[in-house]
Amino acid sequence: MRHIISLLMENEAGALSRVAGLFSARGYNIESLTVAPTEDLTMSRMTIVTSGSDDVIEQIMKQLNKLIEVVAVVDLTDGEHLERELMLVKLRAVGDAREELKRMADIYRGRIIDVSDKTYTIELTGTGSKLDSFLLAIDRGLILETVRTGSSGIGRGDRILKL
């Protein structure tokens, strides 16, 4: 099953490679991994999207907790949560396609953030599957380039991950 793991860790050089190294050394899957400092600059927040059986996920959580620089870990998929990913996609936009692509961007609540006479660059946020479905909805031949950040996750309501 797909799990979204959120963790807080010391914002120190090498901390990221400890997490990445753990996943590769123990053969765990990583679908995506995002990290950036929090409002407290001594700490970074990481979101890891992974998949595995319940036993594997349990080990992943324990092994992450065991890393000395990891302050707190939660499996967001254990409860209500929000998940967002940002995608920038550059599309070939000439002739009729210009109108059509603008309409598609609107449907998906995307924004055109850069325009040239042959291209549009569209910014889109949402769950990973929403971004996937946008890409599927567009004629493959028009897609020039895509960049995705990987998912960031946060608990709903009072569910808070903080030191």
């Binding site: 090498g14 400890r18 190294g21 050394a25």
Partner: peptide, 14 residues
């Protein structure tokens, strides 16, 4: 050194 030993130490520091 920190990279080479990372998987076989409890922790390491530079």
């Amino acid at each position: 050194t920190v990279g080479i030993t990372r998987p076989c130490v409890k922790h390491n520091f530079l």
